[in-house]
Design a protein around this nucleic acid. Structure first.
Lengths: 146, 146
DNA sequence: CTAATTATAGACTTACAATATCTATAATAT
DNA sequence: ATATTATAGATATTGTAAGTCTATAATTAG
């Protein structure tokens, strides 16, 4: 079980966006460059973040992306679900349940485990990690911003 | 992010094995039948459980599989890791870390979340859910056992 | 107004791992 | 001796993630 690369790109991009001076944008090329991923692919990921309402895009010269939601209010889980969807990561699938016919106890345990994970991902925000970005990277991102 | 079907099969198979009378075996055909999966594929999954030391296989007529470890001592996490391996479900992957150069804070948060999940999967055992298998299924499994 | 820049959308391709099958072999019981 | 059962390895299939390509739309700078 692994998170997708897209989720990785999304989380990192959100942190970068949280670091640029407010009001400014940063283009997909710069974001892709730092993450060593192709701009065309990253743009698909970013479009999902736009659709989720975290980010706004600006076309044209000196366009790019910027946050439109307070990163203190954007949790890890928010970003992850914007990319991966909200389906639970385990489903029993058997039609004749081996336990009490309505609930699969195995699925219950797995769902509880997922909830524990999600609780932690809800306690951590993009702002929380953006605070810890190192100085060099901040300079770099500020330079790349428009 | 999803758990594999193989993990699903493994968990269910372990519960079935925990339910048959001790000392008896059950063949892969019966186990596959209940789970609506091909015996050949399930046998690969079961082989992993053998290698993990939870289960023993017996060849020949009336052979099959049986538990060789107390199901109270087998956690969900044990079974999952026997099938999916132990790699963590998120890796930063960037070589130039955006945070403190050694640690990716994003990865840290993700790893902590994974730990929360694993804690819960360690608190739940195969025996725990085997207790809750319904009467019909117990009868069915007992009948299928050798 | 024009040209350059930038994001978006959709079709398409590629790569890879999960899932599944098939066959041959080994072990065991009747 | 034969039927039964698991194992191992090779192979095939499938589905999804990952990535590319092209055309289009929006915006800004000159």
């Amino acid at each position: 079980m692994k998170f997708s690369k897209a989720t990785n790109y999304a989380l990192h991009s959100m942190v970068f966006l949280a670091v640029i001076p407010s009001g400014k944008t940063i283009g997909v090329k710069s974001l892709a460059d730092v993450q060593k991923v192709s701009p065309t692919y990253l743009s698909k990921v970013l479009t999902n973040l736009v659709k989720a309402g975290f980010v706004e895009s600006v076309t044209g010269v000196n366009g790019g992306y910027k946050l439109i939601k307070d990163p203190k209010e954007i949790t890890f889980l928010d970003v992850i679900q914007a990319i991966e969807g909200k389906a639970s990561f385990f489903q029993c699938g058997l039609e004749n349940n081996i336990h009490d016919r309505r609930n699969c106890m195995i699925e219950n345990v797995m769902n509880e485990a997922e909830q524990k994970m999600e609780e932690h991902l809800t306690l951590n925000t993009i702002a929380g990690v953006a605070e810890k970005v190192n100085a060099d990277m901040i300079t770099h991102i500020h330079t790349a911003a428009n």
